[in-house]
Simulated scan of single mutants.
Amino acid sequence: MAPTAVPPEADDDGALPADRDITPFDTWHPAVSRLERRLLKAVQEAARDAREDGVAFVVTSGWRSKEHQQRLLEEGIEKYGSLEKAREFVNTPEKSTHVSGEAVDIGPTDADDWLIRFGSAYGLCQAYANELWHFELLTSPGGTCPTPRNNAAG
C-alpha cells in the first residue's frame, strides 16, 4: 500500500486521531513512521498475512513522544489512584518501549489473538500478560516468544 499524504490532524507526538483508524501501512503518521524499522517491517508483514485470514490490524498506539507518554502516565495515576498501580499499565517516559519506537499496540481483539498465535513467525511477541494488544520484537522470526511479563512494571 502506498502511504497517503499527511493529513493536517496528524499529531507529531504520536497521539492517534479519535475519528479514524490507523493501520501499520499509514506511514504518514508519526505513531507508525517512527516505529523502529525492523518492528514496522515485521508488523506490516504480519498484517499482510493476517489479512489473508480475514483479520485486519489497527494500530491503537505506536511511537509516542516523551511528553505524550508522561501525559498517559499522569492519566493512569488519576485513573488508578497511585503511581504504583498506574505503572502496571503505563511505563514512565524513560522506560517506555513506545517512546523508543520498539513497541506497538494492535487491535481489535481478533488481531491480538492472531498475533499471539502467529506473531513469533515475525519475531513479534505479546510483552505483558495484562495487555493482549502490546507487541514487541522479542524473538527472532520463527523463534519462540518468552513468557509475557506480568505487567509494564516488570
Rank of each mutant, 00 (worst) to 15 (best):
I106R: 01
P3V: 02
G143W: 13
R71A: 01
G81Q: 03
V55W: 00
V58T: 08
D26A: 13
T139E: 13
D113T: 14
A111F: 02
E52K: 11
C125Y: 13
A5Y: 04
F57V: 02
S96W: 09
E67D: 13
Q44N: 14
V58M: 02
K85H: 03
W133T: 15
L83Y: 07
E136L: 15
D26E: 15
A10G: 10
F89G: 00
L73V: 06
P108D: 03
H68P: 00
S120L: 08
V59T: 08
D19T: 12
S120G: 03
S120K: 13
P141H: 10
E45I: 11
T4R: 07
Y128A: 05
D53E: 09
A111H: 06
F135Y: 08
T97H: 06
L39Y: 15
K79P: 01
Q69P: 01
L39D: 03
N151V: 05
E131T: 13
V32Y: 12
H68D: 08
S61F: 10
E75P: 01
D19P: 15
V99W: 01
A127P: 06
G14Y: 09
L35D: 02
F135Q: 05
V104R: 03
S82P: 02
N151D: 15
L138I: 09
I106Q: 04
A153D: 12
T4Q: 11
T109C: 00
A42E: 02
Q44P: 12
E136G: 05
I106E: 06
F25Y: 14
E84T: 10
P24V: 07
E131K: 14
T139Y: 15
G142I: 07
A2E: 06
L16H: 14
L115T: 04
Q126H: 04
D19C: 09
H68W: 10
D113A: 11
V90R: 00
I106L: 09
K66T: 04
T60W: 05
R51N: 11
C145T: 11
L124N: 03
D12E: 14
E9K: 05
S140F: 07
F118Y: 11
L124G: 01
P148W: 10
V58L: 05
T23F: 07
E136R: 15
F118V: 14
T109E: 13
E84F: 04
R149H: 10
E88P: 05
V104S: 00
R51D: 09
A47S: 09
A15L: 10
V6Y: 03
G119K: 05
A152R: 13
K66Y: 03
N130K: 11
L115Q: 05
L16R: 13
P17E: 11
G154E: 09
N151P: 11
Q44I: 08
R38E: 13
R34G: 03
W114I: 03
S100Y: 02
T4P: 09
L35M: 08
E9I: 07
L40Q: 11
N130L: 08
G14W: 13
L72S: 02
S96Q: 07
S120N: 15
Q70G: 06
D13N: 13
T147I: 10
S33M: 00
A56M: 10
V59Q: 01
I106M: 13
A127R: 15
E52D: 12
A121W: 09
T97P: 04
E102S: 04
A129K: 05
E136W: 10
R64L: 04
V43N: 08
Y80D: 02
I77A: 00
